[in-house]
Each structure stands twice: as structure tokens, then as C-alpha cells.
């Protein structure tokens, strides 16, 4: 007998989208976390809200406008950071508050303060459309292709930027690739966890896997397992208990993090 949950096509769509996001987020997350860029994910997610507001205002698919806005903003952040005219985290603060301000103004104009907005803020797999799944899948293919192309370079630059540069790697290009990848990942995760919880998906599984103190490859694999488990179980649990999907996924991730942390301190006590 097929369990109840798979009788609904929106759940299937949500799961498809969710699996893609679960796969991609830690792959980008590992580089962001290790480079102390965790807050970039948070900033870009707020920027994506401005993108969503633009989409709602213009009547275009908000995931597409969010994508365009985050990519443009990510290039702006990297440029400001690289120019060293202002501190790196100040650049983030500027973009975070600036885009939030833009979002609020545009949403007011578009009369967008409704349940629709709530879904974009906190994610709801019910709102995942067939078109969204296609966009997410396409973005995922772009992200994975870029990652495969620049994997070695990203690893070296993340570990030791100067030595990587001396070895002949174009570190500036690699930095731009990384932040654009982060922008793409944020955009593709919006329908599942919403704007406000994306960075959790990118950051928490990686931070948890790092506690295990394994090799680089093993750390990625562990983060992937945590990510898949959290997203799948989050979708199922939230369906049966009628909870917010995004919130449930993030809470499960946090629970795993706390579990790993306590087990680790027990072992090493």
C-alpha cells in the first residue's frame, strides 16, 4: 500500500525540489563555512527577498527575479570586499539592510503582504510549482557543473589563498565563482525553506560534519547525509504533524548538530 503522503502530487514535487536543494546546499556550504563566509548566505537570502518583491511587483515568477537579484548583488559584494574600501562584514550589512528596505517598499507597493509572502519567507512545499521544479533542476545542473570545473581550485583557495595564487590559480576568478554559486544556491532553495531559513540549510549540515574531524571528502559526504536525512524527514514529519516544512527541516538539522556535539564531548571527556 502506498502511504498517504505520496498520493499528493505537491508532496512529490516538494520532495523532488527538496532533494535537489539537500544535495546542493552542503556542497557550497563547505566552502562558505571554511572561508568564514557563513553570513554571505544570510545576506544573499535577504537580497533574494528584494528579488522576490520585484517579481511580485512585476508579476514575474519570483524565483527568477530573486535569482537575477542575488547574482548581481553577489558580484557587488565581492567587488566591495575585494576593493577593501570597506570591511567585508560591513559590505554584508549594507546589502542585507538595503535589500530588506527595498523589499519592504516594493511589497507595500505591490500589496504583497499576504500568505503568499509568508510562503516565500518561511518556505512551503505546497507552493512549489512544476515550473519551480524545472528552474531548481536547471540551477542545480549549473551549480554542479561549475563545482566540478572549479572543485580543486576552490579547495586550494579555501585552504590557503596565497599559496593557491602562487601556484598559478586565478584566485580572484575562483572567489567570484564561489559567491555566484552561493547566490544560485540561495535562489534555488527559496521555495523549500524560504528566504529566512536558507542559510541554515547551507551552514548547519557542514558545521555538524566539521565536528566529526574527518578528511575533506569525508566531511562533504557526512554533510550530505545529514542534509538529505533532515530534508526528507522534515518534509514527512511536517506533512503528518501539519507543521511548517522549512522550520521543521531546520529544527531537525539543529537537533542533529546538538546530538553530535554532546556525543563528541562525551567521548572526549
Amino acid at each position: 500500500m502506498i502511504p498517504d503522503i505520496f498520493q499528493y502530487s505537491f508532496i512529490i514535487r516538494g520532495m523532488e525540489a527538496g532533494m535537489i536543494v539537500a544535495f546542493i546546499a552542503p556542497l557550497i556550504g563547505i566552502f562558505l563555512v571554511l572561508r568564514r563566509y557563513s553570513l554571505i548566505a544570510d545576506t544573499l537570502s535577504h537580497v533574494s527577498l528584494a528579488g522576490i518583491a520585484i517579481g511580485l511587483f512585476l508579476g514575474v515568477n519570483p524565483v527568477l527575479t530573486a535569482l537575477a537579484t542575488t547574482v548581481v548583488a553577489s558580484l557587488g559584494i565581492e567587488r566591495l570586499r575585494d576593493s577593501k574600501k570597506i570591511y567585508g562584514e560591513s559590505a554584508l550589512a549594507l546589502f542585507l539592510s538595503g535589500s530588506l528596505a527595498l523589499a519592504i517598499v516594493l511589497l507595500g507597493l505591490a500589496h504583497g503582504f499576504n500568505t503568499n509572502l509568508f510562503n516565500y519567507l518561511f518556505g512551503s512545499i505546497v507552493t512549489v510549482t512544476v515550473q519551480d521544479v524545472y528552474i531548481i533542476a536547471l540551477l542545480a545542473i549549473i551549480v554542479v557543473t561549475l563545482l566540478l570545473a572549479f572543485y580543486k581550485e576552490l579547495v586550494y583557495v579555501t585552504f590557503d589563498e596565497e599559496a593557491a595564487q602562487v601556484s598559478g590559480i586565478r584566485t580572484r576568478l575562483v572567489n567570484i565563482i564561489l559567491i555566484v554559486l552561493a547566490a544560485l544556491t540561495v535562489s534555488l532553495a527559496i521555495p523549500i525553506v524560504g528566504v529566512l531559513l536558507i542559510s541554515a540549510l547551507i551552514v548547519i549540515p557542514v558545521v555538524t560534519a566539521l565536528q566529526l574531524r574527518k578528511s575533506f571528502v569525508q566531511t562533504i559526504v557526512s554533510a550530505e547525509i545529514i542534509s538529505f536525512f533532515s530534508v526528507l524527514s522534515g518534509i514527512i514529519v511536517s506533512f503528518y504533524l501539519n507543521l511548517s516544512t522549512g522550520g521543521t527541516i531546520v529544527l531537525i538539522m539543529l537537533a542533529i548538530f546538538i546530538l553530535v556535539l554532546t556525543m563528541k564531548s562525551r567521548w572526549f571527556a
Binding site: 566540478l148 570545473a149 572549479f150 580543486k152 581550485e153 579547495v155 586550494y156 585552504f159 590557503d160 599559496a163 593557491a164 601556484s167 598559478g168 590559480i169
Partner: peptide, 11 residues
């Protein structure tokens, strides 16, 4: 990592 720059993209 010391070998990375010698290998091209995707390899």
C-alpha cells in the same frame, strides 16, 4: 593541492 594548478578544469 600542490598538484592542482597543473591539472586543468574538470580534471
Amino acid at each position: 593541492m600542490g598538484r592542482y594548478a597543473k591539472r586543468g578544469l574538470f580534471s
